[in-house]
Deep mutational scan, measured.
Amino acid sequence: MAEAPPRRLGLGPPPGDAPRAELVALTAVQSEQGEAGGGGSPRRLGLLGSPLPPGAPLPGPGSGSGSACGQRSSAAHKRYRRLQNWVYNVLERPRGWAFVYHVFIFLLVFSCLVLSVLSTIQEHQELANECLLILEFVMIVVFGLEYIVRVWSAGCCCRYRGWQGRFRFARKPFCVIDFIVFVASVAVIAAGTQGNIFATSALRSMRFLQILRMVRMDRRGGTWKLLGSVVYAHSKELITAWYIGFLVLIFASFLVYLAEKDANSDFSSYADSLWWGTITLTTIGYGDKTPHTWLGRVLAAGFALLGISFFALPAGILGSGFALKVQEQHRQKHFEKRRMPAANLIQAAWRLYSTDMSRAYLTATWYYYDSILPSFRELALLFEHVQRARNGGLRPLEVRRAPVPDGAPSRYPPVATCHRPGSTSFCPGESSRMGIKDRIRMGSSQRRTGPSKQHLAPPTMPTSPSSEQVGEATSPTKVQKSWSFNDRTRFRASLRLKPRTSAEDAPSEEVA
């Protein structure tokens, strides 16, 4: 009796068929016929556990003709996506030579605008209408194809895939403007070719909807975003200037109206006075309405000098805001240009540092100066060695804690006790272990408590650290204090090793 083939788990290929790579489910599931010992083939499952149809090819690079078809379809799909992405970037994010197409579109729109203006002049109306009709045909074809291509290429973005995504893309403001202008152009052409009475009025009214094509030149909205950011950044200043200017306008108009309503027919109503105030304070000055009385002229002159300053403030605020924003954008561009080279330089330096163990090129690091100058660790070890030599091999803490019996001779020589300023008595072995921070803190506390006492003391002649007598400086308080830590004499004296002298005989010792 033939044995059933062993159940295979995992992703390994079956024996005897090495080139074939078959994806098997996580659990080997066989058909009921196979479990019962029949000759049925096992049921194939996909990666998600769903059964595959009987005629479906197995996924994998070596699955025969199905694999070749899959490779061809995958390559075609990649080319399709690449083309779609390229078209989308050309239309929505132009760079380099892609601006040539947008310059061509701008020339078409500008020519249409010029011809629309010439069509309103009686001398050039006939020729402009003929040229404009031909140009409209060209623009309908160009913009119609462009609109379709834009909607198709938007599928390269995830949020615009599918018919719902394309509809979302078509609802964008600039796409809506394109659609309105396209419909208006078709209506103008249809009305112009019919030759009816309505054609002339339709051409004159709907052609100027094509002015909206100038708005579509900035599809990404960079200028509007820049203007919005400047207004938002200086909103408080703008609101303040406009508010005060509006108050000056209504008060000036009302007072001039009261002064001129009886003697001047131009100011017969408050609305006429508001019109005069707006034209005057905005420095336009049509001259259609002028005050005639001396009181009205004085009020107009005073409020004009006051109001023009507030009406001119928004222009200066926006101008300075634009300058600052442009400078910030230039700085951001320079930062973006330098970020990648800086990151590459840091990575290269780290690779060199991690692979080169000698690091002989590091001549400006802490390790280099640590090898030249005595390190703080060596100074600490030197302090501890000196203290243990004086205390008979014991550390200062051990000397303080060691009990001394009554009447027993002390094995240590008597030492002079010292007192730290602002604290109780402490171990004499710690007097010379006072660090730089303690010395600086002690000097600052003395300056806070009594700076007036220092200038009363007789001035001391500054001497070099080499000429100081070591026996005289029994305490860190003898170090000359200065008002600034930048004094080199104080810094050098604080680094010197001060020996400890006994109370009975204080021989001067120098520590090399």
Rank of each mutant, 00 (worst) to 15 (best):
M1K: 12
R20S: 13
E22G: 12
G34V: 14
R43S: 15
L47F: 09
L48P: 09
L83R: 11
W86R: 14
Y88S: 14
E92V: 15
E92K: 11
R93P: 12
P94A: 07
P94L: 10
G96V: 14
H102D: 04
I105K: 04
V109G: 07
S111R: 06
V117E: 08
Q122L: 07
E123K: 13
N129S: 08
E136K: 10
M139K: 09
V142D: 10
E146A: 04
E146Q: 05
E146G: 02
R150W: 14
W152G: 08
A154P: 12
A154T: 14
G155R: 02
R161P: 12
W163S: 08
G165S: 01
F169C: 03
V176D: 02
D178N: 02
F179Y: 05
V181E: 06
S185W: 09
I189V: 02
F198C: 11
A199D: 11
A202E: 10
L203R: 03
S205R: 03
I211F: 11
M214R: 01
M214K: 00
R216P: 09
R220P: 05
G221R: 08
G222A: 07
G222C: 01
W224G: 07
W224S: 01
L226V: 01
L226M: 01
S229T: 03
V230A: 13
V231G: 04
H234L: 08
H234R: 06
S235I: 04
S235T: 10
S235G: 08
E237G: 07
L238P: 04
L238R: 00
T240N: 15
T240I: 07
A241G: 04
W242R: 05
G245R: 07
L247R: 06
V248G: 07
F254L: 13
F254V: 14
F254I: 03
V256I: 05
V256D: 03
Y257D: 07
Y257N: 01
Y257C: 01
Y257S: 04
E260K: 03
K261R: 07
K261M: 05
N264K: 07
D266A: 07
D266H: 13
F267C: 00
F267S: 04
F267L: 07
F267Y: 12
Y270H: 04
D272V: 03
D272G: 06
S273W: 01
L274V: 08
T278S: 01
I279S: 01
T280P: 01
L281W: 05
L281S: 05
T282P: 07
T283P: 01
I284M: 04
I284S: 02
G285A: 05
G285R: 02
Y286D: 06
Y286C: 03
Y286F: 07
G287A: 03
D288H: 04
D288Y: 04
D288V: 01
K289R: 14
T290P: 02
P291R: 01
T293R: 02
T293S: 13
L295Q: 05
L295R: 11
G296D: 00
R297W: 01
A300V: 03
F303L: 08
F303I: 11
A304D: 09
L305S: 00
I308L: 08
F310C: 15
P314H: 06
P314L: 02
P314A: 00
L318P: 14
L318Q: 06
G319R: 09
G319D: 13
G319C: 15
S320Y: 13
G321V: 12
G321C: 00
F322C: 12
A323P: 11
A323V: 10
L324R: 04
L324P: 14
E328V: 10
E328G: 13
Q329H: 09
H330N: 09
R331L: 03
R331W: 10
R331P: 07
Q332P: 01
F335Y: 14
E336V: 03
E336D: 05
E336G: 02
P341Q: 15
A342V: 04
A342S: 09
A343P: 02
N344Y: 15
L345P: 10
